[in-house]
């Protein structure tokens, strides 16, 4: 092989790897991205049932009902609209009435949000990021300054 051929072969290999990586990224983006919604978003332009999304807001005071099993029903509110949520599983430590929460799952035909994940990882203000943003826009929450999650 000449020097030129060698260089070309390396460039070709690099190009191939990059193309594969780019293809993977684009393909994954189509399938794995989850949009964040507030109850108001759901009320204004509801997503079709079955689409995965994240729903964030405050857990409405007095709305948490525990069934016999581990199914928990509660209402997520952003003070303007409310959305009923069903979740089967253990709620995270920081799950409290009146506190911020993000649930991931999909809407059922009857408009109930079926969550398969309720997020436990919050920043030190115990407020998930998207919720804090959404609520701040609505002027409900006056949380503290941005701080590090774990100072890394």
């Amino acid at each position: 092989m000449t020097r030129k051929q060698r260089r070309l072969s390396i460039i070709a290999a690099a190009g191939a790897v990059l193309a594969v990586a780019a293809g993977l990224v684009l393909y994954a983006f189509q399938d794995t991205i989850v949009f964040f919604n507030t109850p108001t978003d759901l009320a204004e332009k509801p997503s079709p049932p079955g689409t995965r999304l994240r729903l964030g807001g405050l857990v409405k005071e007095g709305s948490v009902v525990r069934d016999q099993g581990h199914e928990v029903r509660f209402i997520i509110t952003d003070t303007e609209h409310e959305a009923p949520v069903v979740y089967a599983g253990i709620l995270p430590d920081l799950f409290r009435e009146g506190q911020g929460v993000v649930a991931e799952g999909a809407l059922r035909e009857d408009g109930t949000f079926v969550a398969d994940t309720v997020l436990a990882k919050h920043d030190e203000n115990y407020m998930p990021r998207e919720v804090a943003d959404a609520l701040k826009e609505k002027g409900v929450w006056q949380g503290g300054t941005p701080t590090d999650r774990n100072a890394n």
């Binding site: 701040k136 826009e137 609505k138 002027g139 409900v140 929450w141 006056q142």
Partner: peptide, 18 residues
């Protein structure tokens, strides 16, 4: 100025104004 806005919105909320 979301901070001030927050106060106004909170006051409006208390009055039931959206």
């Amino acid at each position: 100025d979301p901070e001030t806005l927050g106060k106004i919105v909170a006051a409006a909320d208390a009055l039931g104004v959206a």
